[in-house]
Design a protein around this nucleic acid. Structure first.
Lengths: 159, 159
DNA sequence: TTCCAGAGTATTGTATACAATTAAATTGCC
DNA sequence: GGCAATTTAATTGTATACAATACTCTGGAA
């Protein structure tokens, strides 16, 4: 009879990452409290501060989020005065996300605040780099597997 | 004039973790498709397979989730036949989460399936251990900071 | 015994996520 | 030029998360 290996929560990498992700979320939420931004709203703003204006699709590629998540998120950002959603004139399918003047004006304030809060964490650059390198590997392995499945599905369709 | 350091999404550890967490979620969701379990439902089952029955509170401590998340999740698990929610007789405040016979019967099947899917990822034990060790450090640093804030809040209340 | 502070769970309200579908605009291809 | 396939957002439906609140129960103090 084949022995089955038990799966213990505390030994699961997925749970470490899941738990760390929630803690980071919480950390940024409270760091960003003065600006009223949630973590997903904040990373959307980061991308826009790098590169605005962007279409919903382009923003989604950077954030790995689809329009089902972004459309309501961006509407909330618009209501709070951070962005404007403008239907593109050259391609009416697209909606361009522009920064407002307030967003441009507050950018450095947010950068500074986040910089200070990150300092509180006391993480060394090496620690951060090492971890990010390992996460890159893990993520690419996850991508490979899910692409294999996608390809398998495509192959199934052909038949 | 003080220089402000720009914050680039791709250099943020938080985003690496956030993104990896979503990919893991997706990976397990598809690995668990035959059982109809979501990732949070799966980790709840993992804890219960280790230790059932547990109160909602005890389960929440292991999973780092509160009743606002667990109550509806457990109701869905109950509806799908994995658990039974039983009001404790010795302490009517508590709800004990018991495994059903089906859950006990399917445990090894889930363990096996997950084991196979994890093998597909091709991650070495060293790679996993290293990453988990680093995540433990990061999480404890995040905890320290958020506890400092909690304590700061408490101190404010005293005044 | 009665009252009350605290514990345990459920509920409410807001904000993500994401699969699946819809609707509108554009592109390719004839 | 006309139309099918594709692209882009928005919408719908389900499932987390979590703060804040409500409600019930328990144990202890007066």
């Amino acid at each position: 009879m084949p022995k089955v290996t038990p799966i213990l929560l505390d030994e699961q990498l997925c749970f470490s990452i899941y738990s760390a992700s929630k803690k980071f979320n919480h950390f940024y939420q409270s760091a960003l409290a003065p600006f009223g931004l949630t973590y997903p709203q904040y990373i959307a703003m980061l991308v826009l501060w790098e590169d605005a204006p962007l279409t919903v699709h382009q923003l989604g590629e950077r954030l790995e989020l689809d329009s089902g998540t972004l459309t309501p998120l961006l509407k909330r950002l618009e209501k709070q005065g951070w962005v404007e959603r403008v239907r593109s004139r050259t391609d009416e399918r697209q909606v361009l996300i522009h920064l407002t003047e307030m967003a441009t004006a507050k950018r450095d304030e947010v950068y500074t605040r986040i910089g200070q809060c990150q300092t509180l964490l006391g993480m060394s650059d090496d620690e951060i780099d090492d971890t990010m390198r390992e996460l890159v590997t893990i993520k690419s392995q996850l991508d490979v597997v899910s692409n294999q499945r996608k390809i398998a599905k495509e192959v199934d369709k052909e038949l």
